[in-house]
Design a protein around this nucleic acid. Structure first.
Lengths: 126, 126
DNA sequence: GTAGAAGCTGACACCAGTGTCAGGTTCAAC
DNA sequence: GTTGAACCTGACACTGGTGTCAGCTTCTAC
């Protein structure tokens, strides 16, 4: 499929898809005229990349991680090096901390929302 | 307390603390000489601000939210306006989606880590 | 073959929080 | 009073993924 369709199906801009290629995250065949031609599994790959970005990983680390992923990219998946494994464990810990922080913030927002939703002046407290 | 101590106790840079003040997130008394003098509860406040930043809220929204927080800032907490409540509910939903994404990514990393930790070649699959 | 949609590269800008530096002032201890 | 640490303001830079524009080429359907 071409870039426009991939952008539509993943809700990721064409600009970003080209950026992913530049960063070595996503390769594409080229037509005789030089236009990108993506395989079907590129959709899953792009979604995965977006998730990893959202998780705070930088493109360089994602680029090292992707070959080790067992997604439907057709190829056999590589085994992560010990160095990469160490880094990924650290990333996991960071993600865990982030989830805790997010949960806290979510609850903080909830308190404010609840306080505003109580019938005028939180009568139940008085 | 002065800015250096607050920075040390919260692990937030002095630069950031001054930025928070500039954004209306954190006020401080001033000494006769013009140096910032923070109350004890500023520590909690700074931690809260950091969490909200980590949750993806921008400083302007945090500035509107903070007066409604029931933390130990001494003052009575305001009631959020309906407009703010609507926005906060949207933020909550965004945070929820983010948590789900983070969990997914965390598991993806876990797969790669596990694959590398299995005794050479994932024999159990064969 | 031609028109219009879609794609290409390259470049510049943005966001928003943070790092860092310069040049000056204040504070606390001697 | 002097000295050194701590603080002040203001300014500029960075990060890194994304938006956007210009100028050109390719593809597809008529």
């Amino acid at each position: 499929m071409r870039i426009g369709e991939l952008a539509r199906r993943t809700a990721v801009s064409e600009r970003s898809l080209r950026y992913y290629e530049q960063q070595g995250l996503l390769t594409a065949d080229r037509t005789a005229g030089g236009q990108r031609d993506y395989p079907e599994w590129a959709v899953d790959r792009v979604v995965r990349i977006q998730e990893l970005f959202a998780a705070g990983l930088h493109s360089k680390k994602i680029a090292r991680l992707l070959p080790c992923l067992r997604d439907a990219d057709g190829g056999p998946s590589e085994i992560a090096t010990p160095q990469l494994v160490t880094e990924l464990i650290a990333e996991q810990r960071r993600i865990d901390r982030t989830i805790i922080e997010l949960t806290t913030s979510r609850d903080v927002l909830g308190e404010v929302i609840d306080a505003a939703s109580e019938p005028s002046g939180s009568l139940s407290d008085r």
